[in-house]
Design a protein around this nucleic acid. Sequence first.
DNA 1: AACAAAATAGACCGATCGGTCTACCTTAAG
DNA 2: CTTAAGGTAGACCGATCGGTCTATTTTGTT
Lengths: 203, 203
Amino acid sequence: MTDSSPTPSAVNALPAKQQQLIQTAFALFYRDSIHGVGINQILQEAGIAKKTLYHHFASKDELVLAVLAYRDEVFFNWLEQRIRSASSTEDTVQHWFAALDDWFHNRVAELQEFRGCFFMHSAAEFTDPAHPVHQHCAQHKTRLSGMLSKHLGQWLDSRKAKKLADDLGLLKEGAIVCAQVQGNKKAARQAALIAQSLLISAH
Amino acid sequence: MTDSSPTPSAVNALPAKQQQLIQTAFALFYRDSIHGVGINQILQEAGIAKKTLYHHFASKDELVLAVLAYRDEVFFNWLEQRIRSASSTEDTVQHWFAALDDWFHNRVAELQEFRGCFFMHSAAEFTDPAHPVHQHCAQHKTRLSGMLSKHLGQWLDSRKAKKLADDLGLLKEGAIVCAQVQGNKKAARQAALIAQSLLISAH
DNA sequence: AACAAAATAGACCGATCGGTCTACCTTAAG
DNA sequence: CTTAAGGTAGACCGATCGGTCTATTTTGTT
């Protein structure tokens, strides 16, 4: 496919219908899982014709990957913004779990109603580590950890920053699961306390 | 492993086919998710007729619930056994994460090849907290936490025991997710170190 | 006005979904 | 032997699956 018209500026502005499909698909996938939602359901919900979907995406699999990329971007940007203003290691930890707490209590509009981690869920539906979906999920978490690690690098040497970032990542996953499966909305605060003891004993 | 004891007539014990269906269904659900596996696939894999399935279970939903109960029992019994011999709070924590470490490294035959927490995955497929499947998943984790808390009660007062059990539960979930999504098999040891700092700072 | 890309509705395809049903075979207890 | 329950194979049901296709209309550029 050759695009004859020169596009000087950013390409990241996707066609409107494509965005609408991705957002609708995400909402449905997030609620009922990927395998649990059919193409026709997405089309009906979005009010978009089937031909249009297959004009933008070669298959359901490609739509799924686009949805993962979309959620990755939204979530990453949100969380990065939340810890950006932190002014110390301790402050970053506070911000990290305060953000999760807001998410669990549905105080973050752009993340939709909390239903756990979409990437966790998707990786569970595609257990083969070589599958593109699974790899995308792993990448998301690696990317988050890297972002946090880099941020902590302002006050810690890189080895300690990476280790703490890994630990905060593990605590984040644990909190998300507890919040989602058992409805324990206080899980973010619980994880924050655990992280506190981590900082104390690291002295 | 299957028992090859010479009991030709006793092999036809009543629940044999039912058990076989449940075990086959679990293996498939665990690998490809519940919504991703059809009835016919289960029947073909198990070598059992469709009529037999619907003789034992009223619907796929009921089979799913039976599979959850089966996994719940296997997992609970295994983990309880693993911490039963612990002789102190610290020892229990060691046993707890050593068990997870064995699981992640596929050293526990009865749990099948590690693919994360089946209840976590199932709760993600049925996000409605009122759905029987979701409730069963929540119950599983509550039951595990209760078991651990009771065990820790040997050396701690009940309030501290419950709090520590909750924290160990959160760390367990976090480790499972890291091990499954990112393939980080060292997550159990990582979580164990976090738990260590928890015990130290609790003094 | 002309034209191409984008989008529309919806019929249609073979395959599979969960589930029902008929008909026959095997087994154990009375 | 009789009988009833558990099991077999597999045809069959309407619905939905992911995906293709025809025919038509909308839209933006030139």
